[in-house]
Design a binder for these strands. Structure first.
Length: 254
DNA sequence: ATGGCCTGCAACGCAGGA
């Protein structure tokens, strides 16, 4: 089965691309971030016509997450338990025998900002929650836009990015603490080309110049990781007309 | 050369992204 994640930066703008991509890749599950849609405006009929059920948690203008799946998701949860947050950034659901958690981790803006402090608090709360999810669901996938490049290999110019938001030591530590719960970065289970990124700035022709970061991830529980046959980033949509600044990431599970 | 682009909202510029 195929499990994918994609920060679409507005599902309203990107719906035609998402429908094309679903048709081409036929994933069993596609998690979306930055849908930027209130739930009442979610394109349920269009996705249903394409053969996908949808669970979603959105708000006006910002954030918003969704889980599209061939088989209906159940036991949905759209909050980090005990963490009061008006921002719609998490959605968990069970699809078949898989527990899926879709995350849109806060960006953090800059390391000296309130948004950065919120990012670290948010990550701590997610980590505490996922520890319990893992205990309850050994077959767990945690996917989404993590807004963290875990290693220098995930950064086009590590020297220029040194200490900046998305690569700073506290963020990378938070990412490692997530892995320490018993999760694997599926992309790194396999040999990968150098300069594999999932996000490129809209400015400066960054995509064509291969100036990107790998910040979108598919983490698999230790119980699930052995079933992973492949993990790849699909840069195709990033090169199309009016692209999202993020590329989809796809894992193939046995 | 510290900007540059894109989206949504509501307005004719702003916040936010990363």
């Amino acid at each position: 089965m195929k499990l994918a994640t994609w920060n679409v930066n507005s599902l309203k703008v990107r719906l035609p691309q998402v429908l094309d991509w679903l048709k081409l890749h036929q994933p069993d599950i596609l998690c979306l971030q930055e849908t930027k849609l209130e739930d009442a405006n979610f394109p349920v009929p269009e996705l249903q016509a394409a053969g996908y059920q949808a669970l979603f948690s959105g708000q006006k203008t910002y954030n918003g997450v969704a889980i599209l799946s061939r088989d209906a998701g159940r036991d949905a949860l759209a909050e980090i338990p005990g963490f009061i947050d008006p921002q719609k950034r998490v959605l968990a659901a069970t699809v078949g025998n898989l527990r899926v958690v879709c995350l849109y981790v806060p960006n953090g803006q800059s390391v000296d900002s309130d948004k950065y402090r919120y990012k670290l608090e948010w990550l701590a709360a997610v980590t505490a929650w996922l520890k319990r999810e893992l205990a309850a669901s050994p077959r767990l996938a945690v996917v989404g836009d993590f807004n963290i490049a875990p290693e220098d290999a995930d950064v086009h110019d590590p020297a220029a990015w040194q200490g900046q938001v998305l690569v700073s030591a506290p963020e990378r530590k938070a990412f490692q603490e997530l892995l320490a719960l018993g999760l694997k970065d599926s992309f790194r289970l396999f040999e990968q080309p150098a300069n594999s990124f999932s996000w490129w700035d809209y400015r400066m022709n960054a995509f064509k110049r291969r100036m990107g970061l790998r910040i979108d991830h598919i983490l698999l529980s230790d119980g699930l990781a052995p079933a992973c046959l492949a993990c790849n980033i699909d840069p195709g949509p990033r090169g199309s007309e009016r692209p999202s600044d993020h590329a989809p990431v796809i894992a193939e599970l046995d």
